[in-house]
């Protein structure tokens, strides 16, 4: 408990600092950019990004054609079995250097609310990658970024309903099941980004139920 106090203080200040205008926007009006990464592991210090995808949501519409998908051609090691992410070394070789993808991404991030499923993990990897490739983002820009985590939203919802959570209850697939969203057979960054985007739409529609819903309520 005591350990949590500094965190709370920090949050308070962050909130103050981030009296971001966007926080008071209706969640149906803002534009989102849904991002998903595939990683060789969970440690941002030593593991790498295998592939990266994003999709825009504009006025509650997911534009599939405007989404992007990159495979990192410079990935050093493929720790995980290729079966999981479906990419083998051959596909990697045909990819592009990660910095081209990151440069495109940087241009997009300040226009939209960023959406992840498990934001902390993916965001950590992204920040590390920006640093590695010397892509500098102004601090105020970083501060103004609004990030939404579908996993967190789901976590909150489930704990409010005091359902006991199994260890995998918050993975994307299980979250989607609870909203009766279709099963996707393919697992790659793009499909997962699409799946996350749909999950977000389902979540906000279920949370609002015709009442107003502000971005800050999703944080």
């Amino acid at each position: 408990m005591i350990l949590k106090i500094p965190k709370m203080i920090l949050h308070f200040f962050l909130r103050l600092n981030n009296l971001n205008k966007r926080h008071n926007l209706s969640c149906f009006d803002v534009n989102y950019l849904v991002i998903d990464l595939e990683l060789t592991g969970l440690n941002s210090k030593q593991d790498e990004i295998v592939s990266l995808a994003w999709l825009p949501i504009v006025k509650q519409r997911i534009y599939v054609g405007k989404g992007k998908y990159f495979i990192n051609s410079q990935v050093g090691k493929l720790k995980q079995s290729p079966i999981f992410h479906g990419l083998d070394t051959g596909a990697i070789e045909q990819g592009k250097p990660l910095n081209s993808a990151l440069e495109q991404l940087v241009k997009l991030i300040d226009d939209s609310v960023l959406v992840f499923h498990n934001a902390s993990l993916d965001w950590a990897f992204l920040l590390k990658a920006f640093k590695d490739y010397n892509i500098s983002i102004p601090t105020e820009k970083i501060k103004s970024i609004v990030m939404i985590d579908t996993m967190k939203i789901e976590h909150r919802r489930l704990s409010r309903q005091s359902q006991d959570m199994r260890f995998d209850a918050l993975n994307l697939e299980r979250c989607r099941k609870r909203y009766h969203l279709p099963d996707y057979a393919n697992h790659n960054a793009f499909t997962d980004a699409m799946a996350t985007a749909e999950l977000l739409l389902a979540q906000i529609n279920n949370m609002s139920r015709s009442k107003a819903l502000l971005i800050k309520q999703l944080l």
Binding site: F28, Q60, R61, I62, V64, L201, N205, S208, S210
Partner: peptide, 10 residues
Amino acid sequence: LQIIYLSKEN
């Protein structure tokens, strides 16, 4: 195509 979430409310 555009993907939407169609609900009673929206």
